[in-house]
Amino acid sequence: MILVIKKGTPEEEIRRISHELQESWNIKPETVVGRHHVIIGAIGDTATLDPMRLQEISPWIERVLRVEKPFKRASREYYHGQASEVIVLTPNGAVSFGEHHPVVTIAGPCAVENEEMIVRTAQRVKAAGAKFLRGGAYKPRTSPYAFQGHGESALEMLWQARQATGLGIVTEVMDTSDIERVAEVADIVQIGARNMQNFTLLKKVGTQSKPVLLKRGLAATIDDWLMAAEYILASGNPNVILCERGIRTFDRQYTRNTLDLSAIPVLRSLTHLPIAIDPSHGTGISAFVPTMSKAAIVAGTDALVIEVHPTPAQALSDGPQSLTLEQFDYLSREMEIISQAINRHEQLVPVLI
């Protein structure tokens, strides 16, 4: 349930309303400040509450609305019908993810293999326009015999790449015991597809302050995915970016997964959270990555996560879906042209609603 507060309401009155909700109604109030209104989210058991009774708390309450979706904080209604933004502080400055900001590119290898490779890759993807370097230190693999990542030593290599280039770092955490160490290096903490419904991990990552990139599970519905985001939001971290990375369908002969680009407009109607697309895992074939990257921009994605490796044929993980450095350079130029055409390029001025 949300309370829409009238424009111009004194801050003291907003605090009074919040206090009364908590003390008299046993409801946890959460205040969201929009461009034109202030919203107070009423979190708790509100199923039997009469909205008209809540509206009587103050003449400054414009209206009281029920949030019908099971994902309350993630719903677009909760954020007064607008899109939110996630602002990430990197050594090169603040980068904003959101519907009214330039498309952000996150690029790098599936796994961190050695320092020379990761630094070289970081330098090249930065020169091509990427704002973040991705690289796995801990790798969840289907086979227990496949390369699992270098772990903590790979985090140190990512830190060296960050120092050398100023790029933000995106890397995955797999275990609650590793969150603190990963968050020391990462500017964005990634929750992978296989851990999307690891609720213990979601709740724990929600208690730390770094933004979270939440990948969609292999067979997750949109509701499953948004409810997973709700766990992070409910634990106190408002900075969640949703990442579509392909779902498992009946046809796996021609692509690794089925990249669900229709998720972009669906999510736009349901949630305020920023949206990212991972065409590398979504297709599993490097030749298809450029087409799906460009299609994702036109469809309205806020960010792209693209795997890039200096020598994909020698990669320890996911070489077949990785672009070469030269291929990424070329794709970046194409993506910039498309971004300019739809007004999602670097010089974009945020649109006021």
Rank of each mutant, 00 (worst) to 15 (best):
M1S: 07
I5M: 10
I5H: 06
K6E: 11
K7W: 07
R15I: 14
R16F: 01
I17C: 04
I17Y: 01
S18Y: 00
S18H: 02
H19Q: 11
E20V: 15
L21A: 03
T46P: 02
T48H: 02
T48V: 13
T48G: 03
Q55C: 05
S58M: 07
W60L: 13
I61N: 00
R63I: 03
K69M: 15
K69E: 15
A74M: 05
R76G: 05
A83C: 11
E85N: 13
I87C: 13
V88P: 00
T90I: 08
G93T: 08
G93Q: 03
F97Y: 13
E99W: 04
V104A: 06
G108T: 01
G108E: 02
C110S: 08
A111Q: 03
E116W: 00
E116K: 14
M117V: 15
I118G: 07
V119R: 08
T121Q: 03
A122E: 01
R124A: 14
A130Y: 00
G135R: 00
G136K: 03
P140L: 11
E152D: 12
L158R: 00
Q160R: 14
T165H: 02
T165D: 01
V170P: 10
E172T: 00
M174C: 14
S177G: 07
I179Q: 05
E180M: 08
E180N: 11
R181T: 15
E184M: 08
D187S: 06
V189E: 04
Q190W: 00
Q190S: 10
I191V: 15
G192D: 08
A193H: 12
R194C: 09
N195D: 09
Q197I: 13
Q197Y: 05
F199A: 10
T200D: 15
L201Y: 01
L202K: 09
V205R: 08
G206N: 05
Q208K: 04
S209M: 03
K210N: 12
K210D: 02
P211L: 07
T221R: 00
D224V: 13
D224I: 13
W225Y: 14
E230S: 07
E230Y: 06
L233R: 14
S235K: 09
N237S: 08
R245P: 12
R248C: 15
D251R: 14
Q253P: 00
Q253D: 07
T255F: 12
R256W: 09
D260W: 02
S269I: 07
T271K: 01
H272M: 10
H272D: 14
P274H: 09
I275Q: 05
D278S: 06
H281D: 13
G284I: 02
I285T: 12
A296W: 04
V298Y: 04
A299C: 08
T301W: 06
T301L: 08
L304G: 07
L304Q: 06
I306D: 12
E307V: 02
V308M: 08
P310W: 02
P310Y: 04
T311G: 01
G319I: 06
L323T: 06
Y330H: 15
R333P: 01
M335V: 15
A341V: 13
I342C: 10
N343R: 15
R344Y: 04
R344W: 04
H345W: 12
Q347L: 14
